[in-house]
Design a binder for these strands. Structure first.
Length: 120
DNA sequence: ATATTAACAATCG
DNA sequence: CGATTGTTAATAT
């Protein structure tokens, strides 16, 4: 139980981009397309408390107009939170999370963003 | 303010 | 090729 507490602290530190002690993982993105790797890699660099739009992310990786494809790529994110896809939102509302836009996923996404001081 | 629709770019069968 | 997708911008109600 105390381990869980510490793990949560570490994850929070990781999300903030601070030094982490025992959270490490080798992110293996082979068997993803170039496009999908670009999307995930750029998503990984979005700073704490910052959010980007699907369309904006598309522009950033030089594929203007590929907002929809960006969404598809993110839906395959193998490491949510570690690769903070919750920081990618729709130009209108929330978009989705973990490959779906059901209430569960969306409320979790909202909570993560609240944690970072972002309100949608 | 909300609902519908047509383009959109990439992936999959 | 056609269908599908964590979209978007334009248009209509």
């Amino acid at each position: 139980m105390e381990d869980l507490e510490r793990l949560c602290q570490e994850i929070l530190r990781y999300l903030k981009g601070e030094q982490v002690n025992f959270l490490w993982c080798q992110v293996n993105l082979s068997d993803f397309s170039d496009f999908e790797r670009d999307v995930l890699e750029h998503t990984r660099k979005i700073p704490y408390g910052h959010t980007v739009t699907y369309g904006e992310l598309a522009v950033q990786i030089g594929r203007k107009g590929a907002s929809r494809a960006v969404g598809s790529a993110l839906s395959k994110n193998p490491y949510p939170i570690i690769i903070p896809c919750h920081r990618v939102v729709s130009s209108k509302g929330m978009g989705g999370f973990c490959g779906s836009k059901d209430t569960q996923s969306l409320s979790l996404k909202r909570k993560l963003l609240e944690l970072e001081g972002v309100n949608i």
